[in-house]
Write a protein that binds this DNA or RNA. Structure first.
Length: 592
RNA sequence: GGGGGCGUAGCUCAGUGGAUAGAGCAGCGGUUUUCUAAACCGUUGGUCGCGGGUUCGAGUCCCGCCGCCCCCGCCA
């Protein structure tokens, strides 16, 4: 019998094959194998119940028949099968199976190779973090960065060929407002100091307030944008300087958060590519002029049809002739298809843009179909909003949101204090490194560990928590394993210490081993809907199982077989824990 | 009005139609001459917003309400 990497999938496949040969089942039967509550089994198949019901047969009898047919193919020294309750098939893995699995899949490379079959060779362009430039990053910018980075790492781990494209907002209305503000204030960008980004932000904020209060100013700002988009020399020069300043500020944050970016092709990159969009969409009869704007209706859609009330057209060119994000996003889909040969495009943005992306995807779909272009799979991976104390989205207009730079610095400072207290013997250099990993990791993990579709209220305590389901808890478990290996004088890469392992015996050993073999099923679930918090939950539970094991079972004992098998558990926990943490963007530590 | 999200322990949140709904924090009580106590163990705490329905089985699916947040023509 093989030691399958993906146990649930293998059992599911076996049950399907057997069922196809049985008179009461057939090829249409779906076993529905999934990880089980460990109180009952390791994996369970529930498919028999629904199948029996729809055929008005006794589920228990059918389950027995299926189990009896499969059992001869299973080595009972490795996996046992029982029928329980109304007709659950319960698979229990023996301690021997657990050990053999952990011996078969040792290194991060083994795991990556096994997982890499999922998206083998698939070209995926991921659009993140894509901020609007010319503003300093605040806590509201945290989510697209940390969620996007985790997702791109997950997809790559699963074998995808990634292009990380930072689609910055460098061509929109915000530039009109900012350019107007700079001109009116007589602000000289060449003489700007190191905090120039703060000045720009102030000018933008003032300008933004003015445009809301005064229609004439709003119009003036739009005119500045039109002039920029038409290539006006003065505005272009200003635009370039603003960009340079804001890119510099962003890159500092990207570096701190370990954000991977391959190309930065912002909206401005598509300024000479939107004409083709206007032309082709009109040629194929998708776009039409309405009140001076160019718009697309989707009459086959209940909300985006021209007859819908209220109407919600997809605007791809504004009445003043300027492009908007409809135009640039369409041009971007085409470019990603033609230039990057994308099989799939993943957009990581705020959930408030769901309508926009639905309209974008519908439009691209019809446009590509009419022109005979191959349509990439388009996915919108959206996330909830970080809210201010007032329960409203954090925005510049609602006061001064906490700057991301300051938040991260505060996190690192707090972590450093704790490191100094817990481990005073460390060098200043190592203390700083640990504080960086713990502090930044805590902020990032606090965001990632929540279901991405929910909103949450910003709070220092939440983002700077160091206890419970947090990054430091995971980092600490890893550091302890390194500590054991150090104590035993073992090289982390040398597996010879695992030789001669005896079968797992204690409840803690078995619980930890079971958690480890659940990694592939967890990865499936995480990648299916791209929900990093499932990985967080898993790692937290894994670290918890390890901590219980560590406290109850001494690893470095005199009994050679016991010591070897516990080292297998330690080393495999380290492999999975560190691989998982890196997928989330956390930097594992050897001591803390 | 239409669409989306959220509502689970005092607080913050997990929960793939499956067996007795779980964590953390807070509270209470323990564990260290032994591989890092940033830890571990025990314990208190529940009308899963309300009402129907589907199902062998519903926190989970469907319908109707209630509450909060977000989006709905020239912002992105």
């Amino acid at each position: 019998m093989d030691i399958w990497f993906h146990i649930a999938r293998a059992l599911d496949e076996k049950l399907r094959q057997i069922a196809a040969t049985l008179p009461d089942f057939g090829a249409a039967f779906s076993p529905a194998v999934k990880p089980s509550d460990p109180r009952h089994a390791d994996f369970q198949a529930n498919g028999v119940l629904g199948w029996a019901k729809s055929r008005k047969q006794n589920p228990r009898a059918l389950a027995d028949a299926l189990a009896d047919a499969l059992r001869p193919q299973l080595d009972e020294n490795l996996v046992t099968l029982e029928v329980a309750g109304p007709g659950f098939l319960n698979f229990k893995l023996t301690p021997q199976f657990l050990l053999r699995w952990l011996e078969a899949y040792r290194t991060q490379a083994d795991f990556a190779q096994a997982a890499g079959a999922l998206f083998k060779g698939r070209k995926i362009v991921i659009d993140f973090p894509s901020p609007n430039t010319a503003k300093q990053m605040h806590v509201g910018h945290l989510r697209p960065m940390v969620i996007g980075e985790a997702i791109q790492r997950l997809l790559q781990f699963c074998g995808a060929d990634m292009v990380r494209d930072n689609h910055i907002g460098d061509w929109g209305t915000n530039y009109g407002i900012l350019i107007l503000g700079i001109k009116r204030a007589g602000f000289d960008l060449d003489k700007a100091g190191p905090d120039a980004i703060e000045d720009l932000e102030r000018l933008y904020k003032e300008g933004s307030a003015l445009t809301k209060a005064d229609p004439a100013t709003a119009d003036a700002a739009r005119q500045e944008l039109v002039r920029l988009q038409q290539g006006d020399a003065e505005n272009t020069a200003l635009w370039e300087k603003i960009n340079a300043l804001s890119m510099k500020a962003c890159e500092e944050i990207y570096k701190k958060l370990g954000i991977t970016i391959d190309v930065t092709l912002g909206e401005s990159f598509y300024r000479d590519k939107v004409e083709r969009v206007y032309r082709e969409l009109q040629d194929v009869g998708l776009a039409e002029e309405d009140k001076g704007a160019l718009i697309v209706w989707h009459d086959d859609h209940p909300r985006f049809a021209r007859t819908a009330e209220p109407s919600q057209p997809f605007i791809i060119r504004k009445a003043d002739g300027a492009s908007n994000y409809g135009s640039t996003d369409l041009a971007t889909v085409l470019y990603r298809r033609e230039h990057f040969n994308a099989d799939e495009i993943v957009y990581v943005t705020d959930g408030r843009q769901q309508d926009h992306f639905q309209q974008l995807f519908l439009t691209a779909q019809k446009w590509f179909a009419k022109k005979g272009y191959a349509l990439p799979c388009l996915r919108h991976v959206w996330f909830g909003t970080i809210l201010g104390e007032d329960g409203k989205a954090i925005k510049t207009k609602s006061g001064d949101p906490v700057k991301l730079k300051a938040l991260l610095q505060e996190a690192v400072d707090r972590a450093e204090k704790i490191v100094a207290e817990k481990n005073p013997d460390l060098s200043a250099e190592e203390r700083a490194k640990i504080a960086e990993s713990v502090g930044v990791g805590a902020v990032r993990y606090a965001d990632l560990s929540q279901n991405r579709t929910g909103d949450y209220v910003f709070s220092w305590d939440k983002l700077l928590a160091f206890e419970g389901n947090t990054a430091p808890y995971l980092l600490y478990a890893g550091a302890r394993i390194h500590s054991i290996l150090r104590k035993a004088g073992l090289d982390a890469d040398d597996a010879t210490c695992e030789t001669g392992a005896s079968a797992f015996e204690t409840a803690e050993e078995i619980a930890l081993a079971r958690k480890l073999i659940a990694f592939p099923s967890m990865l499936d679930a995480t990648v299916e809907d791209l929900r990093p918090h499932l990985l967080c939950t898993y790692l937290y539970e894994l670290a918890g199982q390890f901590s219980s094991f560590y406290n109850a079972n001494k690893v470095l004992t005199e009994n050679a077989g016991e010591r070897a098998r516990r080292l297998v558990l330690c080393r495999r926990t380290l492999t999975v824990l560190e691989a998982g943490m890196r997928l989330l963007g956390l930097e594992p530590l050897e001591r803390m």
